[in-house]
């Protein structure tokens, strides 16, 4: 990126201190890992093992995933008990019907019930079910979420605006190794007879991480 950043003013400019500098400067030298990645990538391309287009396509594919996909899966699990059972017990096979391949990871689906509320964290880094939900939110990777979710989950849930009844058990899943976790939220009341498309609108990203519940029918009105 250019250090000079000419800044042609063809856009509305928000009133903040700018001093003629880009907001984020690339002042730091590249990490050793970045240099290594570039070297390996260039070698692989030069030797014809993979092409630049293969890499671009792979990035495009990864970044095309988003929580709407997870919402469809949850909606089907709510609507179809047979699919739900497959998703809980042989998730690989259930995900294939959505064209998702988690390999070499496996998806572990944990179900919220009247008795249990599940939430997911990766204390060691930022493991996340990317093929199903896409890129994790910034807070998921932050040290405060990662350290506090295991230590005081009820306080963290409360800060997310999620009230867990005193009688409910809170079960935290530390996604630290080869599984990735998807929370199956409780199906909201008042959705009897809804089809999958309607149900999917109730399923938010955060409800599939377990820091909130699914939306209620009243919350998606108008």
């Amino acid at each position: 990126m250019s250090e000079t950043h000419e800044h042609a003013h063809d856009h509305e400019h928000p009133p903040h201190a700018h001093d003629g500098k880009p907001i984020q400067e690339d002042a730091l030298p590249p990490l050793e890992a970045h240099v290594l990645e570039t070297a390996v990538r260039e070698l692989l391309i030069e030797k014809g093992v993979i092409s630049s287009d293969d890499i671009r396509r792979s990035i495009e594919e990864r970044e095309s995933r988003n929580p709407a996909l997870g919402a469809k899966i949850v909606a089907r699990a709510w609507a179809d008990p047979e699919f739900k059972s497959k998703l809980m017990n042989e998730s690989d096979e259930a995900l294939l019907t959505f064209g998702i391949n988690m390999s070499p990871m496996e998806l572990c689906v944990v179900e919220n019930t009247q008795e249990v509320h599940n939430m997911v964290v990766c204390t060691l880094c930022s493991c996340y079910p990317r093929p199903v939900l896409g890129i994790p939110p910034a807070w998921y990777k932050r040290r405060d979420y990662r350290s506090r979710a295991v230590r005081e989950p009820r306080a963290v849930l409360q800060e997310f605006g999620t009230q867990i009844p005193e009688a409910k058990q809170v079960r935290v899943h530390d996604s630290n190794a080869d599984l990735r976790y998807l929370v199956l939220p409780q199906r909201p009341d008042g959705t009897e007879g809804w089809d999958e498309e309607q149900l999917a609108k109730l399923v938010t990203r955060d409800s599939m991480i377990g820091v909130s519940d699914a939306l209620t029918p009243a919350e998606i009105e108008d």
């Binding site: 230590r151 005081e152 079960r171 935290v172 899943h173």
Partner: peptide
């Protein structure tokens, strides 16, 4: 690889949630 279930009270001496709260990890 196993999933291991812990009582939160086993992990943290001063855990102040419910005694039934658990943590599962691989």
């Amino acid at each position: 690889l196993y999933r291991v279930n812990f009582a939160q009270s086993e992990l943290w001496d001063d855990y102040d949630g419910k005694p039934e709260d658990t943590l599962e990890i691989e």
